[in-house]
Structure formats: structure tokens, C-alpha cells
């Protein structure tokens, strides 16, 4: 379970300060798929960065499975991240000159997974995204959709409990985007991993168990799937400055 308790993030010093997040609290149960929705600059990416330990909260707590990662030393946060979570980005961030195999191998190397176990894990991840035939191909020779599938293979190779996806379909056409979405939700359901998607895409957000709407650094609303599917009118939101929702 991921729990954000009164998390605030302020950038800058003295007069030049900017509050990216203000007193945000939310509980995300294990295995949920969550869409973090909001306009550009609303603070959704900052929220993801703080949840993943990539950024530090100015105040508040980020409790994952009972541990407040804000109190962790950098080395412990790195280790925690390498063993617990993974990322998918809009820009794929695959290493073009490396083979697909070596791209997927990176998280295993970082997590110091023994060499003898790696091959099977990499092949399984590539097979899960349908790239088993491409394992010796260079990443730069893949299409955009294949690159994102490769990024997913890299993200899931280590069986992370939490998967962060930052605009995963933002650079893809709708057909390819849907295939990527399918892969993400498949992983979420089959592995029971928590999927946190930062997106502008309403269709993608509607497929998630829960939607967290961010506006001006605050939680504007939190909607569960039930609320989303029962709606007949356009999605209404209820203001929740300190919202907590359990599914």
C-alpha cells in the first residue's frame, strides 16, 4: 500500500518559491491501477516523483508497505526503488545502440540479480511484450510501439510491485497506444502489481480502478471505478483537499 500523508513540495527559496504540491494525502491499495490526472503544471508528475522517491517531499510522509521512504538515506531509496518499482516514460528512454536484450537487462544489473537467473527473466519479459524475436535487434531499429513495448519489458523484468507510467501512450498512435495499455493492465491484473499512470488521456484514465485529479498542486477529486462506471453525466468531481479513498 502506498500512502501519501500531507505531502507538500515547494521549489525555490525565499521570495521565489513555488508550491508544486500542497498538503496531498492519498492511499493507494496494493494491486490497484491509478490514473493521476490533471493539466500540465498541476503537480501530477511531482506527485509521481515523490511517490517513487525520485524527489523529496518538503513536508509530509510517503509510506510504502509501512516504511516512510522520506526518511530513507539516498542509498536505501535507490535499493528500494530497484527492488520494488519501475518506470515507463513517454519518451521510452531505450538505449538505441544497445540490443533489446541488453536494454531489458539494465534493471537486473542494477538490482544485482545473479547472471545465471537473468537470461530466463529477460526472455520471459520480452515474450510478455511480444519481442522475443527481437532480442538481438538494436533498439533504434524498432518502431515507436515496439520501443514502448521494450520499455515495458524493461520495466517488468524485475517483477516490480509498483509500476509508474508517465504518459505511456503519449507518443503513440491510438492503435499502438491501446496495445500498450493492454500490456500495462495485463501486468497489473496478472501480477497484482500497483499501476500508477500519469496521463492526460481520459480513455486511459477511465480504464483505471481509481482516478486522482490534481489541480494547482492539490487533490481536486478522487474517483473510484464504481463512481466512474455508474456515472451517466460527465464525470463529476467532489472537492477533496485531504481526500482518502480506499477501494
Amino acid at each position: 500500500m502506498i500512502e501519501l500523508k500531507a505531502v507538500s513540495k515547494v521549489y525555490g527559496k525565499k521570495k521565489n518559491t513555488f508550491s508544486a504540491l500542497r498538503d496531498v494525502s492519498v492511499i493507494i491499495p496494493d494491486g490497484a491501477s491509478v490514473a493521476v490526472v490533471g493539466k500540465s503544471g498541476s503537480g501530477k508528475s511531482t506527485m509521481m516523483h515523490i511517490m517513487s522517491g525520485l524527489d523529496h517531499a518538503t513536508s509530509g510522509q510517503v509510506v510504502i508497505d509501512g516504511d516512510d521512504i522520506v526518511t530513507f538515506k539516498p542509498r536505501k531509496v535507490d535499493k528500494f526503488r530497484s527492488e520494488t518499482m519501475s518506470f515507463i516514460f513517454q519518451s521510452f528512454f531505450v538505449q538505441g545502440n544497445e540490443s533489446c536484450y541488453n536494454n531489458v537487462s539494465l534493471p537486473l544489473e542494477i538490482a544485482r540479480v545473479p547472471l545465471r537467473r537473468r537470461k530466463a527473466m529477460i526472455e520471459r519479459a520480452l515474450a510478455a511484450v511480444g519481442l522475443e524475436e527481437k532480442k538481438r535487434s538494436r533498439a533504434r531499429d524498432l518502431s515507436g510501439g515496439q520501443k514502448q513495448r521494450l520499455a515495458i519489458a524493461r520495466a517488468i523484468v524485475n517483477d516490480p510491485k509498483i509500476l509508474f507510467a508517465d504518459e505511456p501512450t503519449g507518443n503513440l498512435d491510438s492503435v499502438t497506444g491501446e496495445a500498450i495499455e493492454k500490456l500495462l493492465f495485463e501486468y497489473n491484473k496478472k501480477q497484482g502489481a500497483t499501476l500508477i499512470v500519469v496521463t492526460h488521456d481520459e480513455d486511459l484514465a477511465n480504464k483505471c480502478d481509481m482516478q486522482v485529479h490534481i489541480k494547482d498542486g492539490q487533490i481536486a477529486s478522487i474517483n473510484t471505478r464504481q463512481e466512474i462506471t455508474n456515472q451517466t453525466q460527465p464525470l463529476t468531481t467532489r472537492p477533496l483537499s485531504r481526500g482518502k479513498v480506499m477501494l
Binding site: 525520485l54 535507490d78 530497484s82 518506470f87 528512454f93 538505449q95 542494477i110
Partner: peptide
């Protein structure tokens, strides 16, 4: 730079 960012996001330590 972006590759370094990715490696850090995946938990690679500064010293590594």
C-alpha cells in the same frame, strides 16, 4: 543525460 536519469530512476546508485 536522459540515460543517466533512467538509470537513476531504476535505482542505480550515484557511485555506480
Amino acid at each position: 543525460t536522459s540515460q543517466i536519469g533512467l538509470m537513476k530512476a531504476l535505482g542505480m546508485r550515484r557511485r555506480d
